[in-house]
């Protein structure tokens, strides 16, 4: 496969790639720290994955196999659009199979299947600052990160517990990385947070509009914030997948009629299809 000759391989010019690559290396060296970078305007809108796309473009080579998911699915429109973009500008092979991919760009989910050392997971990040709801000023949050002053976040979570009996944050649930940096895991459901802990794959995060890159190296401690008397508990719908029967995967709720009818199906389409296929094989 070859790439569109009107553009440089993987779209970005080499100066831009070098700048992003330098930022990526520093991000890996300082796990969880947001490294500012000179994000470029991409031919896709800000907020639609431009950060993830720039990271992927800086990483991707012709031998890579790329998987792109949005909400866990390969066939959601934005995932399709991004996959087509890389197919055009880098000519790389693409796959929907988690196990076959060397680079996985994701929005809002971590695949159910455990990732390996041979894989890189690239997250699209709309808002890299975990403290932004409590303190919108970057000048101030930078200072808080410098001092590891995260009391504000603990207070917020504790107020949740006092008011609701438990923490009300359901996604973008903040984590401590390597015991030093408070980090936004991107808007993945809290259910996915434990997968980040000591993951064998390298995790890279790109926020294009906010112009930040951060990373979690393999086998790095990622702890969801909690309290001794209120330990972190990931939640999923208390149901099984209507298609593959999974009782452990993260489920999407599908409304089937206007009389309260609903069903649950896996959000990770590759996981679900693989399970369905193996069930059919078992049945045959």
């Amino acid at each position: 496969m070859s790439h569109d000759p009107a553009y440089n391989f993987a779209y970005l010019d080499e100066n831009t790639k070098r700048m992003i690559r330098r930022a990526l290396l520093k991000a890996v060296a300082i796990p969880g720290h947001q490294v500012p970078f000179g994000a470029r305007e991409m031919p896709l809108p800000y907020g639609w994955g431009t950060g993830g796309i720039q990271v992927t473009a800086a990483v991707l080579g012709p031998r890579d196999v790329l998987k792109v998911i949005d909400q866990g699915a390969d066939d959601t429109t934005n995932a399709v659009s991004i996959r087509r973009f890389f197919n055009r500008v880098a000519g790389v092979g693409t796959t929907t199979r988690t196990a076959e991919a060397t680079v996985i760009q994701t929005r809002h989910r971590i695949p159910e299947q455990a990732l390996t050392e041979a894989q890189i997971l690239v997250y699209q990040v709309p808002m890299p600052e975990p403290l932004f709801r409590l303190e919108p000023r970057l000048a101030e949050t930078r200072r808080m990160h410098a001092l590891a002053d995260y009391g504000l976040m603990h207070v917020k979570l504790y107020e949740d517990i006092a008011r609701h009996g438990h923490i009300s944050t359901a996604y973008s649930y903040p984590v401590m990385v390597g015991g030093r940096y408070l980090m936004s895991p991107s808007p993945i459901p809290a259910f996915d947070n434990p997968k980040m802990h000591r993951m064998p794959a390298l995790q890279l995060f790109g926020a294009g509009r906010e112009k930040r890159i951060y990373a979690v190296p393999p086998y790095t401690e990622v702890r969801s914030l909690d309290f001794e008397d209120h330990p972190f508990r990931p939640h999923r719908a208390d149901a099984h997948c209507a298609l593959c029967g999974s009782r452990s995967s993260y489920l999407d709720e599908v409304v089937t009629d206007d009389r309260g009818g609903r069903m649950f199906v896996c959000s990770d389409t590759d996981y679900c299809e693989t399970r369905q296929a193996s069930r059919q094989e078992d049945a045959a």
Binding site: R21, A29, A58, G61
Partner: peptide, 16 residues
């Protein structure tokens, strides 16, 4: 282009 990419991946892997 491609030599820089493969060298970067080696460095990224080394740093990771």
């Amino acid at each position: 282009v491609l030599d820089a990419q493969s060298c970067f991946r080696a460095v990224l892997e080394a740093m990771s």
